[in-house]
């Protein structure tokens, strides 16, 4: 793909192809963590950070190692190993340099390895044939989109906790109904960027 402006990537990553609401990536953690704004914010920060780091690492490994040596069939396995080791590394670094940040982000980091949003970003970067800047920027904007939806969702769910909801709908079904409404709003962004 040539001539993709960074602005188009940003709008795409945040709104038109929002990871949670339009592409259905990272839903497991979305439903689990969005009960409180505080943990939602922590999770989003961790996801955004790992997304950017993973985009950088995956781009380097893919362009300089897998592609020149014809090893592209190892893409999935090497990406998942990159993400897993990156998460470990980030955990060590944060624990060493900022214990307060570690205490608030720590529990979310192991969850990220199996978050499909991260693997989704790096695989999409490869499939869309983004260059280095585009890859990193896409990782960043996807993270921004994730954070935004996460914060909206968690604040709505916090407000909803005082409502009287029928027993059968409580919990996850109710979260899905809120998500439906949010998703309807985001669907309106379709076609903003001509493809």
């Amino acid at each position: 793909m040539e001539d993709v402006s960074l602005f188009a990537i940003a709008i795409n990553g945040i709104f038109v192809k929002n990871f949670l609401l339009v592409q259905f990536l990272g839903l497991c953690s979305f439903l689990g963590v969005s009960k409180e704004t505080k943990s939602a914010a922590g999770m989003s920060a961790a996801v955004m950070f790992v997304m950017i780091m993973a985009s950088i690492a995956a781009f380097l490994i893919y362009t300089f190692l897998l592609k020149p040596f014809g090893l592209t069939f190892l893409t999935t396995i090497s990406f998942i190993i990159i993400i897993a080791s990156l998460v470990q590394l980030v955990e060590f670094i944060i624990r060493k340099f900022s214990p307060p940040l570690y205490r608030s982000l720590g529990i979310f980091l192991p969850l990220i390895t199996t978050n499909c949003a991260i693997l989704g970003v790096v695989i999409l970067n490869v499939r869309l044939e983004y260059g280095f800047i585009e890859s990193v920027f896409y990782g960043f904007t996807a993270g921004v989109g994730y954070t935004m939806v996460m914060l909206i969702m968690s604040s709505i769910r916090e407000k909803c906790s005082v409502l009287r909801i029928p027993e059968a709908v409580q919990g996850i079904p109710h979260a899905f109904f809120i998500t439906t409404l949010l998703s309807m709003a985001f669907v309106n962004f379709f076609g903003v960027i001509p493809t």
Binding site: F24, H174, T179, T180, S183, M184, V187
Partner: peptide, 12 residues
């Protein structure tokens, strides 16, 4: 068919 429909279906 849109994403919103998916969320609603699984919710129901």
């Amino acid at each position: 068919i849109l994403p919103a429909g998916a969320f609603m279906t699984i919710g129901v």
